[in-house]
Every structure is written in structure tokens, then in C-alpha cells.
Design a protein around this nucleic acid. Structure first.
Lengths: 339, 339
DNA sequence: AGCCCGACGTTGTACGTATAACGTGACCGC
DNA sequence: GCGGTCACGTTATACGTACAACGTCGGGCT
């Protein structure tokens, strides 16, 4: 018995099967047709099985000069949304023999750690959410193929982008609420710098501003349920007419915060005030009334991101086109009561 | 100008700085004290900076025979809970110069993919949730240091385990509800085989069974909000006395499903029926009334898991002891009404 | 007989890094 | 003036793999 403290290598397998290391590599790499007899191949496979041989990935990666591993940078993992993005990306990756490593950029203020220090795996490319802003600086300098999620195509300096059709989502929300008869709105806006949020604000302003006699005021809030609650309480208790009858929120979590704020003000949803969100998380159907929200297909988002990266890696041009989104109408929106 | 299509290596840096490759390695590896002059070291650092040199991790891993990378196997990432576990584990890992790679075992029935095919990074060890049952079989055969999360210590065949004190959580729930005056319970139980759920069921039966005149019936449900809704509707519409006044759920998502089921039956929470959950997700404070639930510290769970793995890697014995949990009493529990 | 060719493997090498082992002057003490 | 020590590097090697290039041997063709 050997020390066995270390894992068997292809050379150990070779010795056990009575062949050379190269033969082992050929057989296990499925490149042996016409070069090794079936009998020998079988002997090699048997030996590998018995020794419990696993190829050393570090060595393989070094030899091949590629790792088939990709990094996904997201703002935080605690959100259902980015979990979905990961799932989609990982699925496509697996179909192509790739793996996905995750770098959730640390929440809160703290100094941004280097994603590549954390993801010690050697990488072939990177997919990054534009929301993980602090991690993005670290991406400069790395000369890696890069795909950006939800990022300004003009500002991404050549990196491929995959975007949700955020503007269209905003238009659908505006359309829906205007159609119900609403004229005065609060936009509960996430107070983080992001192209996505700018696009949404712009689209809302455009669509609603096109209708005479409307108003829209913006309430900024930190991205938390409690922050949203407070912001909505503040915005709705402003006595200056006209009183808003609908709160358009930048995501579902904020919308649920809005529920709470409205409840404290003694306002009912949707009778007194309609509320909309964006994301369509599980949360949206957990609350009462269920939330009217823009459904984003997070997994498709991840899939498209990975496909784009694969395209870049293969020297192809990723296909463009924003990912469509659609409004899901539930119980949180209704015509404004005549008051 | 070289082709530049490939990334610079330490040898390129050496050439640029007019030193040997070894010197580069020493300087950048911070092992140069007393071996290289400050001036030369600075020249090397400068050259590395200018060329944008990044060490090839595959080569480093091969050379060092270790990767400082660890795999975290979880049942699914779409849950806030395991996102928290990851965050905690990654934090501790980073503090020790380790990285964490994630393997979310695919949801639903599909054939279990091999986690190690997906996580192509070379690994030093594995942390696995016992809930990712289908992936566990793949762990056998790999001779990797292993830590199991929430797993029967007796059944783990020597692998280290880190567990939440599930039984104590169940006792706290029972205590609380009994104290309020409840005597007849429904246990809304996740219908997946898991040691965790067995422990909880056992603890509930023990604690409640110790009080005379009590009853507890088990309603099994798939792990989904809608499944829970249906199961609760079925269980509570059973006319056979005694009518249960409290629903104890295996997690928060199920509890919210229970809310919906009760609402459809025209029963109010908590006036007619009390409801409790487990996990204390954001969801718990998003619903109305807010949910009384057992708070699990997911991040601490992840941290302890990683610490245990580090201990194993260093040949130490991981410290034992379950992670304490505590009941958070909110609006979903109240004394039963006298009817 | 001489030649070639296919079947079956083997030898050798490179990937990029970390580090053990080995110079090589210069300077110092005696 | 000679051994010794220090400061400053360099040379050489190994990690485990994949694959290009090179045998070797027996048989069939001319």
C-alpha cells in the first residue's frame, strides 16, 4: 500500500494498467480510436475506476490554456432575482461544458474586495451586473472577455451587453395605470446610481408626460423595505394637491414597503392608492393584495448573458435585442376612487 | 510588438524588468525580503503593473498542489436562506484567502448532474447541505474533505457536521403556542425526506405530547406556497373535532401559503388561527400580519460551515455544538378565541 | 525479397508557477 | 591575504496533463 495520502494521477493509472501515461490520457480523453486497442482501453478504464482516479483540473487547465469557467458578478445574492440569473447562466454553461463561479459583491459600503481574489478559479470570461458597481473597477485591467448585464450599451466601451427591456416595462405600467384613470403618480425610485433606473425614470416621464393634466413626483429611497415605507409615508402625507393615486415602485421589495407605509397612513390598496412593482418575485404573490408588477425573466436573463459570453469566446458577435418583459396585473391596481 | 493575443506571464515581466522569472515570483509572492534589493523589487512591480500581469491560477494551483477553493453544494439558490449561507461561508473563506464555488443542485426531478463537472475549478474541499440529496451521491468517490450542513451526525460516516438547533427551535414554538393556550395543532410538514424535518417533527411531538389533552395532526405538502395553501385548506376543512387553532409550518414560505389557505376558508390570522414559520426570511415581515417564526442565522450557519472545513483542512477537529436559534414573536400568533 | 502501411503504443515536451539549491562579488575581520 | 559572511540574484526542477512526433512489428503487395 502506498501512502495514499495523495490522490492518484494519470501516471498511477498507467502503472496499474501496464501502459504509458500518454495512453491513459488518450483513453480517458476519448481520443483513442485507432490508436489503442479496445482491450487495452478497457484495462485503462478499469484501473482508473479502481484507483478512483480524477484528473487534476489545475494541470488540465494549465495544459489546455483554458478553464471553461466563467465568473458571474452580481450585486448581492440575497435577492431572488440574481439567484435566478445565476440559475439560468449555470444551465446554459453546463450545456456547453462550462462552469460558473459567483462573485456577489459585498453588500453595504465596505471596501470592494477584488472579485478575482475571491474567485481563485482561473477564468475564461466574466458576466457582470452593472449594479455591482464597486466590483466593476476591478474588471478594468483584467483582459478578460466581458458581458455586461443591464448596462448602457454606449457606455460599456465595447463590452457586449445584454439588457432587459426596462423602458418597455415602464411604458406598460404607465399605460395600465393611465388606462385605469390615474393621473397623479409617485415614482418610488431606488436611490442608487444605475443606468437601469435612469432608463425607467425617463420612460415613465415620457409616457406619462405625454398625457395632459398629469403629474409625477419622484420619491427617492434606499433599497430596503423599511426605507420604502418611510419614503412613501413622507411622500403621501404631503398635503399639497394634487393627491397621487398610484405609487410606481422600482422593484417588488420597495412596493411591499409602500404597502406598509400606506397602511400606516390609513390608506387602502388598491381602493385608495394603486401600487406597482418590478421583478415579480415570490414576494409579489405572497402579499395581500397580490402585487401588479412587471415580470422579469431572471433565468432567461442569465441564459442570454451566458450565451452572449460564449459567443464572445468563440469570436462570434452576440445577438442583440433586449429581452422582452410583461406586466402582470394583479390585485394592487384599480381605478382611482372619485374623491 | 508581440502578438499580445495571450496574457503576459511572469517570464514576460522578468524580461521587461531585466531579471529572472524566479525573481519575479519572489517579489510578487512577497518572499523577497533579504533576497532582492528594494530597487529591483520596485522595478519588477512596475513592469508587472505596466504589462497588466496576472498570475495564471491554473499554474499556481498545479505548482502548489492546492487551490484554496471550496465547493458549496446547496439545494437551490432561489431561496434567500441559502444565499445567506453562501454569503457567510464566502466571508470566512475570503478572510483565509479561500474562494467558494457554488453548486446549486438543479431543482425538480431532472437527473442530478455531477457537481464536479459543473464546478470545474479544482477543489480543496466541500461543504454540502443535506438537502441537496441528489448531489450527495456524487460526493462519494471523491476523496475530498467534507462538511455536511444539517445532517444526521450519526449517519454522516465520519464527515464533520454543522447543525442548527432545529429541535430547540421546535420546542420554542411549541412552548410559545402552548403558553398562549393552544391545544390542537396542525403541523404543516415539508414532504421531502430530510433529517432536519424528522428532527423537527420529533421535537414537536415530544413537547406537545407531554401536555395532556393536546392533539397534533400532520399535513404533508410539497415545498411551495401553492401546495401549502391547498394542504392547509384540506386540513382545516376537515370537520372532525377538535378544530386546530394553530398551524406550525416547516418554513416561512409554507406559512405564507397557509395564510392564503386560511383566508380562502374565511379564517382570520391570528384571531381564528395562529400561524408560525421557520427561517425568518424577509418574507416574514412583508406579509400582514407579520409572521411569528424561528429565526435562523443563515450567514452564521455558512460561517460555521466554512470554519469547520478549514479546521478539517488543517487537520484540526472542528468544534462541535449546534447553532442556537430563537423564536421571533410577531403578529401571527395570539391566544385562541374561546369557541 | 523488399517495401510500405496500418495497428498499437511510447517518448518527449510544454503549459506557468514556486521554491530549493546554487553562484558571485564585495566587504570585513584578523 | 584569506576565509567567511552577507546581499543579491540565478539556475534548475517539479507539479499533472494533453498531444505531437516518433518507433516497432507483422502482414500483404509487387
Amino acid at each position: 500500500m502506498a501512502p495514499a495520502s495523495t490522490r492518484p494521477t494519470s501516471r498511477d493509472v498507467a502503472r496499474a494498467a501496464g501502459v504509458s501515461q500518454a495512453a491513459v490520457s488518450l483513453v480517458l480523453g476519448d481520443k483513442w480510436r485507432g490508436r489503442v486497442s479496445e482491450a487495452t482501453a478497457e484495462r485503462v478504464r478499469r484501473a482508473a475506476e479502481e484507483l478512483g482516479y480524477r484528473p487534476n483540473l489545475a494541470a488540465r487547465n494549465l495544459r489546455l490554456g483554458r478553464t471553461r469557467t466563467v465568473l458571474l458578478v452580481v450585486p448581492a445574492l440575497t435577492t431572488e432575482f440574481f439567484a435566478g440569473v445565476y440559475t439560468g447562466a449555470a444551465r446554459v454553461a453546463a450545456d456547453h461544458g462550462f462552469g460558473v463561479v459567483l462573485y456577489p459583491s459585498p453588500e453595504g459600503v465596505g471596501p470592494a474586495r477584488n472579485p478575482f481574489a475571491s474567485a481563485r478559479a482561473a477564468l475564461d470570461g466574466v458576466i457582470a451586473s452593472s449594479m455591482a458597481a464597486d466590483a466593476l473597477t476591478a474588471l478594468r485591467g483584467e483582459q478578460l472577455p466581458l458581458v455586461m448585464l443591464d448596462s448602457d450599451p454606449a457606455g460599456s466601451l465595447g463590452a457586449a451587453t445584454v439588457n432587459l427591456d426596462i423602458a418597455d416595462g415602464a411604458r406598460q405600467v404607465a399605460e395600465h395605470l393611465l388606462g385605469l384613470g390615474h393621473r397623479h403618480f409617485v415614482h418610488l425610485a431606488a436611490d442608487v446610481p444605475s443606468w437601469t433606473f435612469e432608463v425607467r425614470a425617463g420612460a415613465l416621464a415620457d409616457r406619462i408626460g405625454a398625457v395632459p393634466g398629469t403629474s409625477i413626483r419622484t420619491a427617492r429611497t434606499p433599497v430596503s423595505m423599511d426605507g420604502a415605507r418611510a419614503a412613501v409615508q413622507a411622500a403621501l402625507s404631503d398635503p399639497a394637491p394634487p393627491r397621487p393615486t398610484a405609487v410606481i415602485c422600482d422593484d417588488d421589495t420597495l412596493a411591499v414597503g409602500a404597502y406598509k407605509g400606506l397602511r400606516r397612513l390609513g390608506l387602502r390598496v388598491p381602493e385608495d392608492v394603486s401600487v406597482t412593482g418590478v421583478d415579480d418575485l415570490h414576494l409579489a404573490t405572497a402579499v395581500d393584495p397580490e402585487l401588479t408588477t412587471v415580470h422579469l425573466d431572471a433565468e432567461l436573463f442569465g441564459e442570454r448573458g451566458m450565451q452572449a459570453l460564449l459567443a464572445v469566446l468563440e469570436g462570434r458577435t452576440p445577438e442583440g435585442g433586449d429581452i422582452p418583459v410583461h406586466l402582470v396585473v394583479r390585485g394592487s391596481t384599480a381605478p382611482p376612487c372619485a374623491s
